[in-house]
Design a protein around this nucleic acid. Sequence first.
DNA 1: AAGCGTATTTAGAACAATTCCAAATATTGA
DNA 2: TCAATATTTGGAATTGTTCTAAATACGCTT
Lengths: 172, 172
Amino acid sequence: MKKRVPIDFVGERLNEQLARTGLRLTAQRRQVYNVLLLKRDHPSAEEVFMRAKSAMPDISMATVYNCLETLVKCGLVRQVNHDRKATRYCSNMQHHHHFYCDGCGGAFDVEPGRAGGEPRIEMPPGFRVRNFEILFRGYCPECAAKRKQEAPVTTSEEPQTACRSSRRQSIP
Amino acid sequence: MKKRVPIDFVGERLNEQLARTGLRLTAQRRQVYNVLLLKRDHPSAEEVFMRAKSAMPDISMATVYNCLETLVKCGLVRQVNHDRKATRYCSNMQHHHHFYCDGCGGAFDVEPGRAGGEPRIEMPPGFRVRNFEILFRGYCPECAAKRKQEAPVTTSEEPQTACRSSRRQSIP
DNA sequence: AAGCGTATTTAGAACAATTCCAAATATTGA
DNA sequence: TCAATATTTGGAATTGTTCTAAATACGCTT
């Protein structure tokens, strides 16, 4: 690991955020951040490791975990958890929700609704809500289509949701 | 484990649900279910184990996991996950949401809103939503109060939510 | 109440994801 | 270039959970 670390467009933002916490911009951190920006499909640490490794063969799993943690602390990346699966990492820092496919396990961003789309749940008194997120489950377009042709008359489905499916909002 | 298993009010419901899947009503299953009904504070498997153990000293962790799994399959209990913490178990089978306290780690039920309270997020086309749940984070009344007196002028808070806090809806 | 086939419980091993550790290496500023 | 500090690294340790195979219990039939 003797490379200089040229500061490019990716490095810019990264360095800026790191600097404000007194952290250093290293080749590994940049690589990991790059991976996350390049394909925003919510990869797990393992997947980030594999992708990073193809460009930087000597990077270690421990480092990937370290870098991810650092990026999270810097506010450049978010962790996304679903059930007890491995934590996934998301470089979309806008407020948004997630859809998890019961078929392929994929995670998709769901943009918060526009007009009156956000929930107006009333909390019991005393609770201080700092943030919230909606977690949707179901089938992604691919899996939905696949299931439709394999089992035309689907049973045991429980569409207990108030959400309409229409207009596109976000792409995998 | 030579006890008979008398069927009481708890056993009733349990037995009914078990029966429809060809499962047996055992003392352990009843004990575990009882624990979950008795104190609905979303205990983890470990906590269920400890509580069950005080009434049934020979019950094993493996059995607790087995029983919990069975109860989930029967539709009497739900799993609730938050971040990478241990799975918690919830005997409230109504559609509802959860609030997680960043202070004490507690989990609280949040009843779905009444008039227009549920989210109307529009999904991209093709997605099939089967269900959803809202996950709130913040401070529970106790922790909120504690923090207020310790740090009167709180910084670094990001109240990026559209949710009002008022009228009680659910108790811990 | 004895026997039988199946379900359940149990202790402990195995596992996956993640964190911790201490030594080696890299980076920054003087 | 050097010292001081931060980061990376491989491997061990941890946590929560699942798996396994043997022991036990159940429900039913005689």
